[in-house]
Measured scan of single mutants.
Amino acid sequence: ELVLALYDYQEKSPREVTMKKGDILTLLNSTNKDWWKVEVNDRQGFVPASYVKKLD
């Protein structure tokens, strides 16, 4: 499943990933309501769920 980055996000820990507004990311896990695991540029990590939106 793919998600769209709604905002820029700068990683604050090694478990997170940086994304730019408009990026298309692969959603790996959305079981946590606050932090979703995504893959971007061959890196996996977490981003705030409120910063991304699922693409239909």
Rank of each mutant, 00 (worst) to 15 (best):
E11K: 14
K21Y: 06
V3G: 14
K54P: 10
G45R: 01
T18Y: 04
R43D: 04
F46R: 03
L25E: 01
E16D: 05
T26Q: 15
V47D: 02
K20N: 07
Y9R: 02
Y51Q: 05
P48F: 03
L6F: 03
I24S: 03
F46C: 11
V3M: 07
P14N: 11
V17P: 01
A5S: 05
L6N: 03
S30I: 07
V40S: 15
N32Q: 11
D56C: 12
D8F: 04
V17L: 15
F46A: 02
V38R: 00
L25S: 02
K21Q: 11
K37A: 09
A5C: 12
L27F: 03
G22D: 06
S50T: 11
R15T: 12
V38F: 00
P48I: 02
R15G: 15
Q44Y: 07
D8C: 04
K12T: 12
G45K: 02
A49V: 05
S13R: 08
E16W: 03
V52M: 06
T31E: 14
A5E: 02
W36T: 04
A49R: 09
E16M: 05
Y7S: 09
R43C: 06
E1G: 14
Y51R: 06
K53P: 02
N41Y: 13
P14W: 10
E39G: 10
V38M: 01
N32G: 10
K54D: 04
M19E: 01
K53Y: 09
E11A: 15
N29Q: 11
K54W: 08
G45V: 04
S30A: 13
S13P: 04
K33Y: 08
P48W: 02
S50D: 09
N29H: 07
K53T: 14
K53R: 11
W36V: 07
L27C: 08
N41D: 14
K53Q: 14
L55A: 05
D34H: 15
E16I: 03
E1I: 15
N29W: 07
E39A: 13
W35E: 04
L28N: 03
R43Y: 05
E1L: 13
N29K: 07
V40I: 15
L28R: 05
V40M: 15
R43H: 08
K33L: 10
L28T: 05
D8H: 06
E11C: 11
K54I: 14
S13K: 08
G22N: 07
L55E: 05
I24Q: 05
S30T: 10
K20Y: 11
L55P: 05
Q10N: 14
T31A: 13
S50H: 14
R15L: 14
Q44P: 06
V38K: 01
